[in-house]
Structure formats: C-alpha cells, structure tokens
Amino acid sequence: MAKLSDKEILELAKLAELELTSEELQKIPGELNSILDYVAILDKVDVKNLEPTYQVTGLNNVQRDDLKIDYKLNKEIMMSDLPDKAEDQIKVKRMIA
C-alpha cells in the first residue's frame, strides 16, 4: 500500500481542517506510515462473495412517527455553550467576503 509523503500529509491535514505543530509534523508521517504498513495485512485477505458489514444489529427501517418530541433539552445551557452569539444567532467569523 501507499506511503504517505509529507505533501500528502499536509493535504490530509487540510482536508481534516487540522493544523499540525512542527513537532507533530516531525512525528506523525512516520507513525501514519507504520500504521498503514500494519493494516496492509488486509491486502492478502480473500473477500470474494462477501458483502460489507456496516452495522451489526441486522436492524432495518428504524423510524419515528412524524410528531414533535420534547427532548427535555435545556436550551439556555445550549445557547450559553456557544463560544459567541448575537441576536440569538451563532456568531462566526465572516463566511463570505
């Protein structure tokens, strides 16, 4: 399997919206590659005629009625957890110029 280059590591970090410290940039590429080397043992597994298992319960069609629910949510706490707010809205750095 592939070896990740430093450039790919940076692209990956960008995709995950992560900034890496210089220390992390030293360590993480080698660590990721050793992990990817390890999981390469799956290459040799024969999976012919198998379907993937995304969930193990075997459940289907778990749905709720189209009715309002009282979640017993404390909305004051939820709003006070916001890092920044204005006019009852979530205040964020400007999205478009």
């Binding site: 709720r64 009715l67 309002k68 629910i69 939820m78 709003m79 006019e87 009852d88």
Partner: peptide, 30 residues
C-alpha cells in the same frame, strides 16, 4: 411536507420562527 425535521422531532416550519427556536441538540450537532 412533514411536521418535523428529517432526523429530529422538531417543528419543520421555520417560516415565521425566531432564530434558533426550532432546534434540538440533534439540529445543533451536539
């Protein structure tokens, strides 16, 4: 045309609602 949202039992008609009044922890992604 549903009464409630796709994944949470919160009123789906946001037309005249004040901001962030029709929200649950699910809508907020808590």
């Amino acid at each position: 045309k549903t009464e409630t949202k796709l994944f949470s039992g919160i009123d789906n008609d946001a037309r005249d609602a004040k901001p962030n009044t029709l929200v649950s922890h699910i809508c907020f992604g808590l």
